[in-house]
Amino acid sequence: MTSPVVDTVNLVKIYQDGEVPVPAVRGVDLRVEAGEFVAVMGPSGSGKSTLIHMIGGLEARTSGEIWLDGQRADMLKESAWALLRRRKIGFVFQFFNLVANMTVADNVELPALLAGVSAKEARRRREHLLGELGLTARADAAPAQLAGGEQQRVALARALANKPSLLLADEPTGNLDSRNTRDVLRLLGEVHREGQAIVLVTHDARVASLADRVVSLLDGQIVDDGGAGLARRRPRGGAGDVIELRG
């Protein structure tokens, strides 16, 4: 039996606001198996972003454990975390974090090159990802020349350049119109089929509905975990009825 890709044990994050401790994540046990697609939902302030940042090593935990691929990660030093991220994790930030003085193409190729992939392979992968996301024509642009939705898709392409075994994404469709969301959903489906695990924070029900499991957070705690597949009881039939009811 292989280790889970992610396993958090009683994970806690408390921010300090002056003298006042503000708990953001209050004892989360989250286990994600290899190749699993998990969506994290919940109101703003429920701790979703903090949770995914901790899993990605971008914020230090207050207490608890984080295991990645069977390896204890929360005790790692910053540099060791960075190495682990480069090898195994792709991260899509809510605010993109693209390198401003590099072209779109170079932004996307960089993580693969850093991980030691050949220039030719990095280029092939970049062309595929930008093509899937409708960004081929923007390859030579600078990030600042792009609209928000384009930057967001570049950030996704960059996160996937390395074929990470774990994709972490914070609201990856937050700035997209519905056509671009469709491209992103298609790409996520492909990534999932290829066996990469996905953990993403989202408000977008179209994205969440594709996940194997939906984890709901409220006040820093898990209040629901969709388990294997969603309940799909349809007393009145299929999607056509939604339209009829609302239409």
């Binding site: 709901s216 969709g226 999607a239």
Partner: peptide, 14 residues
């Protein structure tokens, strides 16, 4: 919520 997400999944397929 699970029920709505199931409906959303159907709509995606549709």
């Amino acid at each position: 919520r699970r029920h709505y997400l199931g409906l959303m999944r159907d709509l995606n397929e549709l």
